[in-house]
Amino acid sequence: MTSDTFATIRTSLLGLTGLACLAYALAALVLGRPDPVGWYWPASIGTAAGLLISLAAVMAGRARAGQATDDLYRHVHQRAATQGYWLSLVTLAVTGAAGAFGWIDWRTAFAAQGTLTGAGFLLSFVWLDLRHR
């Protein structure tokens, strides 16, 4: 497996996890309940993605995985963390206001905010990674 293939697998899995988190959050907000599907789905998908990325890293080998985790990866990761931080502050204001005004209950706001925080970072990472290709 080349470092490019490993990086593509990693980005794809992080993107799928981000989309799953976003879908869960939107479903929670639209349906007005903290568990629009099983509550364990976002965590399960994230854990499975982590395991698959680890497996891909082992298959690629230390050198290839290291190549794909270089300066550019760290740069993209850092920028995604920054974007994710600001996105989570924005969504916190929205979910906090929705909870405070009684539009959704606090448990739903908590579930939506938790998954939106994950989605913000993960989808920012994928967006920035694709822009640097």
Partner: peptide, 9 residues
């Protein structure tokens, strides 16, 4: 020991 993408960018 970096990715081809890094060289390209």
């Amino acid at each position: 020991s970096v990715s081809r993408k890094t060289i390209n960018t």
